[in-house]
């Protein structure tokens, strides 16, 4: 019999761990949607300041928003924002426990009401602005 030796072997995690499986990758995509949203908010704030600055500045900025690169960014940002919304609503029941008469409201109903609110708010904004 050999002598018992304890020399635990430690494995390290590469910085690319999130590329090793689909779930990890989708998690990282979900987290990075926030970068697109932040950049969009900055562009929106600039837009508002241009509105305040006057018609010429505002129209010049609209032209800038219409350039292919900026437009492409917004298309990507829209995809990112949609992905954020869907993942957010699907995960909402995880932290949210709602009870009606001692019964827990099923996850599907919590997520479903989130989606309904989303559609209602989006339609309202669209209608107000356009």
């Amino acid at each position: 019999m050999g002598e018992a030796v304890s020399r635990p072997y430690r494995r390290t995690m590469p910085a690319t761990w999130w590329l090793t499986n689909r779930a990890y990758f989708l998690f990282m995509v979900r987290e990075l949607t926030s970068v697109f949203i932040a950049i969009y908010l900055v562009l929106l704030l600039v837009l508002i300041s241009k509105v305040a600055a006057g018609r010429e500045a505002y129209e010049a900025y609209l032209t800038f928003l219409g350039t292919p690169a900026v437009l492409a960014f917004h298309v990507l940002a829209l995809a990112a924002a949609l992905y954020h919304s869907i993942t957010w609503f699907n995960l909402a029941p995880k932290g949210l426990v709602v009870r009606v008469r001692e019964r827990r409201v099923p996850d599907a109903i919590i997520a479903g009401s989130n989606y309904l609110a989303w559609i209602a708010v989006s339609a309202l904004l669209w209608w107000v602005v356009l």
Binding site: A23, Y24, F27, E31, L91, K94
Partner: peptide
């Protein structure tokens, strides 16, 4: 925790 969610899976 950043809610990767794989623990639950």
């Amino acid at each position: 925790c950043t809610l990767v969610g794989e623990c639950t899976t």
